[in-house]
């Protein structure tokens, strides 16, 4: 129990610290790397709560795909972050003030949080169906395809929209681009593509 508590605070502290660094790091590549660190710590927190599936998803999807994509984009684009950040200091005092007020208020709210009596036992307890404990993944799957089928399908439509959007906004048919036409390739016969030419020494070849 004590180890879990220590781990919880360690993960949390590192996560918050790397969050701060994401915003404040001078080098954008460092920012992205700190972001990845924050993801890892969040995954650790999930594991502590017994949500190992979510933890793995976080690592695989966010770290493995999203953050790496970020990294590529940041490295490939020559964005002058220093210039973008030039207004930062000017707005820092008032920004910090607003942020601080908000933080204080939210802490105040969490002060009033009462845990429901049943939560402590429900936390991290394996689900039981007919005496057999259900894995995290299986339990989620059961829910997603039944109780949350509507939400799941809607999320699918959202992804479709994202796909259409990406294509609409970026795909361009440039004139003169060479493309592979598989049908044309397969339809080619020997007669169309190969010609036997007799070459005489010292004379030019016809049609070349």
């Amino acid at each position: 129990m004590i180890i879990q508590t220590i781990m919880f605070y360690a993960f949390s502290a590192v996560a918050v610290a790397s969050g701060v660094m994401v915003v404040s790091a001078r080098n954008p590549v460092h920012s992205v790397l700190f972001l990845i660190l924050a993801f890892f710590n969040a995954a650790g927190l999930f594991v502590l709560m017994g949500a190992e599936f979510l933890a793995m998803i976080l690592v695989i999807v966010y770290v493995g795909a999203v953050a790496v994509l970020f990294l590529f984009v940041v490295m490939m684009l020559d964005v002058d972050f220093a210039r973008l950040r030039s207004g930062f200091l000017r707005y820092l005092p008032i920004g910090a003030l607003i942020g601080f007020i908000l933080l204080a208020e939210l802490i105040l709210i969490f002060g009033s949080w009462e845990l429901a009596p049943s939560v402590a036992t429900a936390k991290a307890a394996p689900m039981l169906v007919g005496g057999i404990s259900l894995t995290n993944t299986r339990a989620l799957g059961d829910l997603i395809y039944t109780r949350y089928i509507f939400a799941f399908q809607t999320a699918g439509v959202i992804l479709l929209v994202a796909m259409i959007g990406a294509i609409v906004l970026t795909l361009r048919h440039r004139v003169g681009t060479r493309r592979q036409s598989i049908a044309a390739q397969l339809a080619r016969t020997r007669a169309q593509s190969v010609e036997v030419v007799k070459v005489r020494v010292g004379e030019p070849v016809d049609g070349v």
Binding site: Y148, A151, T154, V157, I158, V161, I164, V168, L169
Partner: peptide, 23 residues
């Protein structure tokens, strides 16, 4: 609340795209 958010996002995502439709 889940339906609320998903509907909102489905709407918004499509709107972001059509807003910059004249790319």
């Amino acid at each position: 609340l889940i339906t609320l958010y998903l509907g909102l996002e489905l709407q918004s995502l499509a709107l972001y795209v059509v807003a910059s439709f004249d790319r």
